[in-house]
Nucleic acid binder design. Structure first.
Lengths: 106, 106
DNA sequence: CGGTATCCTTGTGGATACTG
DNA sequence: CAGTATCCACAAGGATACCG
C-alpha cells in the first residue's frame, strides 16, 4: 500500500467503519453471535429499533457478508439470522470493543 | 448487568460506537497513534477533511478522553495531538479492525 | 498556524400504514 | 411473522469566509 492510500477512504479501517458503523449493528452482531436468531426474537430484544430499521440494518449486514439469512418456506413465515465465517471472525473484535467500553464507563 | 440493559444504548458496545463512530475518527486515531502529530501535519495527510471538520472530530476525540491536546504558546501557534492512556488501550482494537478489514477487500 | 462562525447539503435513522 | 413502501426529521458532515 502506498502512502497516499494509507489513510484514504478505501483502507481497511474505513471499510470496517462502513460495514459495522450503523447505529445498531454492533449490538445486533453481538446478539446474533450468541446463537442463530429469528427476526421476531431480535425485534423483541431491541424494542427501540423500529421494524423497518431492523430489516434495513440486517439486510445491510447481510449484503456486507457478515450475516446469513435463512428463509424457511413455512406458514407463518420464519427467517433466521446467523453469522457468516466473516462475521464470526469479527466477534473477537466485538468482545474487545465491549470490554474496552465497559472498562471506562465513568 | 441485567438482561434489559444487555443490549441497550448504554452498554459498552454502543458507547464505543459513539466515541469512535465519526467518519474520520478511526483513521485519525491510527495516524496519531504512530506518533504525536501537529494539527497542520494531520491536515496535510488527510486532504479530504476540511479544516473545520478536522477540528471538530479532534475535539470530540479529546472530550471523549481518547486524545490529549497540547498547546504551545508560541508565535506562530503550535498544537500537538497525542493518545491518552485510554486511547492507547484502543490501539490493539484498531489494529484488529484494520487487519480484519484488509483481509476481506474483495 | 490553527483555529471560529455561519450557512448549507446529505445521509441516517425513524414513524406510520400496508402486505404476502 | 416478517416483512415493504412512503414520507419525514434531524444530526452529521462540508463549504466558505474570517480571526488571534
Amino acid at each position: 500500500m502506498n502512502h497516499s492510500k494509507k489513510y484514504s477512504s478505501d483502507c481497511g479501517l474505513n471499510k470496517v467503519q462502513k460495514m459495522v458503523g450503523g447505529k445498531w449493528k454492533l449490538s445486533l452482531l453481538w446478539y446474533i453471535s450468541e446463537e442463530t436468531r429469528r427476526f421476531g426474537e431480535i425485534k423483541r430484544v431491541f424494542p427501540d429499533i423500529t421494524q423497518s430499521m431492523l430489516t434495513k440494518q440486517l439486510r445491510e449486514l447481510e449484503s456486507d457478508g457478515l450475516l446469513h439469512r435463512k428463509i424457511y418456506k413455512e406458514v407463518p413465515p420464519r427467517v433466521e439470522y446467523s453469522l457468516t465465517k466473516l462475521g464470526q471472525r469479527f466477534v473477537p473484535i466485538l468482545h474487545s470493543m465491549s470490554e474496552w467500553g465497559e472498562s471506562n464507563l465513568e
